[in-house]
C-alpha cells in the first residue's frame, strides 16, 4: 500500500473519531467496561491461584520415627526423599525440637506439661515433614516410604508411622485436592463466561456505531471508493477506541489495586495485587491494550462488511 494511502486512512480514522464525538465516547465507555472485566479476571485468576497455592502448601505428609532411631539414619531417609522428583521440601524436626514445639504448643496446659515432667525422658520421636510439588503426588511419596520401611526389615523399622496411611489425614488431603481443582475449574468457567459476554456487548456497540454510518458507506461506494479504502478508517477508529479504553483501564487499576492491595494480601494470603500490578505492568499493558485494539479492529472490520455489499 502506498504511504499516501496509509496517511489518508489514518487521517480519515482520526477525523471520524473526533467528529463522531458522542458515538466515540459511548463506544469507549462500553469498551472500558469490557477491558476492565478482562483485567479484573486477570487479577482474579492470580489471586485465586495464589490462594489455592497457599492452601495446598498447608498439606504435607509427616513421617514419625521411633524414639530410638539414630539421627544419621533419619538424615539418610531425608536425603533419599529429597532426591524424589515429586518432593519439594523435606523438613527435619529433631527429637529436641519436637519436644520444644510440644512445650510451646501446650504452654497454657499445666496438666500436660506436668505429665511430661513425670516422664523425665523425651517421649517424642523425630519427624520428617514432607511437602510434595503437587497435592496429587503424596500417594507415590507414601509408597516410597513404605518400601523404605520394608527394605530396613533386617532390623526393626525406625519409622514409627507415616500419617498418610491415617484414614483421616488421607481423606483431608483428597478433599483439599478436590476443592482446589474444582475451584480453579469453576474460576476458569466464570472467567470465560464474563469475558465472552462483555466482548459480545462491545461487539454490538461497535456494530451500532457503524450502523449509524451505513448511508455514508453506501455513498462512498457509489462515488467509486474501493472496499478496503472504505473499511480501513473504521478499523483505525475501532483500534483507537480500544487503545483509549485500555489506557483508561490501566489508569483505573492503579488506585484500585492500591486500595485493595493490603486487603488482598491478608485475606487471600501471599499476594498483594498492587505490587503484582506494578511488577507485571508490561504484561497488563500488552494484554489489556492489545485485547482492546484487536477487539476494536475485528469488530469494526466485520461490522462494515455488511454495508459494503453494494
Amino acid at each position: 500500500m502506498k504511504w499516501v494511502t496509509v496517511k489518508r486512512i489514518l487521517r480519515a480514522g482520526l477525523l471520524d473519531f473526533w467528529r463522531n464525538g458522542f458515538v466515540s465516547l459511548a463506544s469507549i465507555l462500553v469498551m472500558t467496561v469490557t477491558l476492565f472485566t478482562v483485567g479484573t479476571t486477570l487479577f482474579a485468576g492470580v489471586i485465586l491461584q495464589s490462594a489455592l497455592d497457599e492452601l495446598k502448601n498447608k498439606a504435607d505428609v509427616n513421617v514419625y520415627f521411633v524414639t530410638t532411631a539414630p539421627e544419621d539414619e533419619i538424615l539418610k531417609i531425608q536425603q533419599s526423599l529429597q532426591g524424589l522428583p515429586e518432593v519439594s521440601v523435606v523438613e527435619y524436626v529433631s527429637r529436641d525440637q519436637a519436644l520444644a514445639d510440644f512445650r510451646e504448643r501446650h504452654q497454657n496446659d499445666q496438666l500436660t506439661l506436668q505429665a511430661l515432667e513425670e516422664l523425665g525422658d523425651n517421649p517424642l520421636g523425630a519427624v520428617l515433614n514432607v511437602k510434595a510439588k503437587d497435592i496429587s503426588q503424596y500417594e507415590s511419596i507414601a509408597k516410597f516410604l513404605q518400601n523404605e520401611e520394608a527394605l530396613s526389615s533386617g532390623g526393626p523399622s525406625i519409622i514409627d508411622k507415616v500419617n498418610f496411611f491415617d484414614e483421616q489425614h488421607r481423606a483431608a488431603l483428597d478433599r483439599l485436592q478436590g476443592v482446589t481443582s474444582s475451584a480453579s475449574q469453576l474460576g476458569l468457567v466464570i472467567i470465560i463466561i464474563l469475558i465472552f459476554t462483555t466482548i459480545a456487548i462491545s461487539f454490538n456497540t461497535l456494530r451500532l456505531a457503524i450502523y449509524t454510518s451505513r448511508d455514508e458507506i453506501q455513498v462512498m461506494r457509489l462515488v467509486g471508493a474501493g472496499m478496503a479504502y472504505i473499511r480501513a478508517p473504521f478499523v483505525v477508529e475501532g483500534m483507537l477506541y480500544g487503545f483509549i479504553s485500555g489506557l483508561l483501564v490501566l489508569l483505573l487499576f492503579y488506585p484500585l489495586t492500591y486500595w485493595i492491595g493490603s486487603a488482598s494480601a491478608s485475606f487471600f494470603g501471599g499476594i498483594n495485587v498492587f505490587y503484582y500490578y506494578l511488577g507485571n505492568f508490561p504484561l497488563f499493558f500488552v494484554s489489556i491494550i492489545g485485547t482492546g485494539m484487536l477487539l476494536g479492529a475485528v469488530a469494526s472490520f466485520l461490522a462494515v462488511r455488511r454495508y459494503l455489499k453494494i
Binding site: 489518508r8 477525523l15 455514508e216 455513498v219 462512498m220 461506494r221 457509489l222 467509486g224 471508493a225 479504502y229
Partner: peptide, 30 residues
C-alpha cells in the same frame, strides 16, 4: 467503473462528517 460515472442524487448524499472540501477530496482520494 463507478469512477467513470459521476453521480448526483435528489437527496445530495454528501458525507455528513466531512466538509465541502473533504467531500470532494474523498472522491479523488478514492
Amino acid at each position: 467503473l463507478r469512477r467513470k460515472i459521476g453521480t448526483v442524487f435528489q437527496d445530495f448524499r454528501l458525507l455528513p462528517n466531512k466538509t465541502a472540501y473533504e467531500n470532494i477530496a474523498f472522491a479523488m482520494e478514492a
